[in-house]
């Protein structure tokens, strides 16, 4: 067991993994497509999925402040975009996101899943001033499949759109888009609802066909007053695996209510991934400037047994 700061966490009884990032990447890596086409090409080309920014272990070192370190220790997981962005109502531009994934499987009898993290987000300090509104969004979803459905519950903090502050949380919700509409008109690999972080028609306000704004979802997280200051903020999402629905979402000092029975799109099951448990954290640029999401730590836990 690593020295993660347990005071920030409230796990379910069975901890699956506790990743502190002071001892390595802990199985987190770049989310990349399936290189199964001839010539090791990616499986689909509806949008550019191969140029997202790379994930790395960061000491959070800056030009003027020196090494910030992490909440506990030196290193955190840094998920970075490249210096690219498309308008909010367009599909994501090549390289405009960074995504890190960990690949697990649901243990037997798990009926609730909780994913907790300590996170911070920053814009690259490559120019004078405050860059907060150059970061469009960050978020987390978990790719799950049971014997009937593949589904991806998740939340996204829309920080800014077109350089204007938004600061609101949304969650992934059902869409009635066809598979073709979902993949921006391509007759692709993906079923509607799968990979909502980059598929589904987008709106100019930062919404998509598969997002719903929390009714009380405005939150001014701690970006701080400079592009080199990090405040490690607790994050916790709980999912009901039996009903495939959202249960609880907490960030910082706030708790956000889901409508009763709220759930993400339920896509048909895919081949050979039953029991999948793949959490993904991501960050999105709003301008041609690199942005980063820092994680220290990630704690994934479940509760087993029959529903009460």
């Amino acid at each position: 067991m690593t020295s993660f700061p347990s005071g920030f966490f409230d796990p379910l009884p069975r901890i699956l993994v506790a990743d502190d990032f002071d001892h390595g990447m802990s199985g987190w890596l770049d989310l990349r497509p399936n290189f199964v086409a001839p010539g090791f090409r990616e499986h689909s080309s509806d949008i550019d999925l191969i140029h997202w920014g790379p994930t790395m272990l960061s000491s959070a070192t800056f030009a003027f402040g020196g090494t910030h370190g992490s909440a506990s220790g030196t290193y955190s997981l840094k998920i970075s975009s490249r210096a690219a962005a498309a308008p909010a109502d367009q599909p994501p531009a090549a390289g405009s996101m960074g995504l890190a994934i960990k690949r697990l499987a649901v243990p037997g009898d798990a009926r609730r899943l909780r994913i907790e993290a300590l996170l911070a987000y920053k814009v690259e300090q490559d120019r004078p001033g405050l860059g907060v509104d150059d970061l469009r969004a960050f978020g987390m979803f978990v790719d799950l499949q049971d014997d009937e459905h593949r589904y991806m519950p998740g939340v996204r903090y829309v920080n800014a759109v077109g350089g204007e502050a938004v600061r609101r949380w949304q969650y992934y919700s059902p869409t009635d888009a066809t598979d073709e509409e979902w993949s921006y008109g391509a007759d692709g690999w993906h079923k509607a609802g799968v990979d909502p972080q980059w598929f589904g028609e987008r709106g100019p306000d930062g919404s998509t066909v598969a997002t719903t704004w929390f009714e009380d979802g405005e939150q001014h997280l701690i970006y701080n007053e400079s592009d080199d200051k990090l405040n490690w903020t607790p994050f916790s999402l709980t999912v009901d695996l039996v009903n495939r629905s959202y249960e609880e979402f907490r960030v910082g000092g706030r708790s956000f209510r889901f409508p009763d029975g709220a759930h993400p799109t339920l896509a048909p099951a895919y081949n050979d991934i039953e029991g999948l448990l793949n959490p993904v954290f991501f960050v999105e640029a709003d301008t041609d400037r690199r942005v980063s999401l820092f994680l220290d730590s990630v704690l994934i836990s479940v509760e087993r047994g029959e529903a009460a």
């Binding site: 790379p54 790395m56 070192t61 490249r82």
Partner: peptide, 16 residues
């Protein structure tokens, strides 16, 4: 990654 003449790779943190 296609580059047009000038090449700069993504800044990579690896102090560990």
């Amino acid at each position: 990654q296609p580059f047009d003449h000038a090449i700069e790779t993504h800044p990579y943190e690896c102090g560990w």
